[in-house]
Amino acid sequence: MSQEIRKIEELARTIRRDIVEMVYLAKDGHPGPALSITDIVASLYGSLLRVNPSDPEWEGRDRFILSKGHACPAVYSALARRGFFSPELLPSLRALDSLLQGHPVMKKTPGIDMTSGSLGNGLSIGVGMALASGYTKKNFDVFVIMGDGELQEGIVWEGALSAFKYKLGRLIVFVDHNGWQSGASCNDVGGCVSVKSRFEAFGWHCQEIDGHDISAILQAVKNARAETNLPSVIIAETVKGKGVPFMENDNSWHKRVPSKEQYEEAMKILGGC
């Protein structure tokens, strides 16, 4: 195993501990969806994103949009661990006057490139960013993480069409395909059409990977970056609540606060205490 992958895996473990602790201390938040995207977020901030924590507004940086904004504890942790702000701020999640709002806010939090939380909008906004990348010749890449549930929003497919029309090779979308959304399984709530077939129908470059396999994530992004003429979707098969066994695939953890005992158990599993 390469040193890079070990480093990302260690970051992912740290992020998972931060997520559980943030939600426990804030007494609010979405642990399941955040744990689901943790390995993708760790790969982005641990390796893939060209960003500069000491100059968060650097014009040439790669952009990242967390379209499923409710999973933000994962991103807040990654930003803090990457040096955008102090990890000491993490326990202030959702508190009054905190930099760390309940959902991401670009004008409040260093490193957040776009406000999000209202589902479905990240892809279209990413289209605008990717168009700007080409027009300004800054040639940065634009990454978006979407949930599989939010693919039910119509604007996703408006944006998907535009991305194909404009051949936005710099737009790389992860779909966190854990199969669950707030109310129940995505298939039960929204219908059962495969994610891959939908993006294929819109002409995108599609890959399906294990969303918890760091080397697969890195390779998929490498493939996506090599595809310069089509927008890319990486459909990441994930487990909601990944890493905390009693949260895994239990949708009650979509938005739920662990008890003291559950918190301690989770931290022990994650190597935190």
Binding site: M114, N121, S124, A132, S133, Y135, G159, L161
Partner: peptide
Amino acid sequence: AGIAEQNAVAMAAGLAACGL
């Protein structure tokens, strides 16, 4: 953006967020 006003306005947000 096509006949897709939400897409048009969201795209504009993305363009503006990159300094345009």
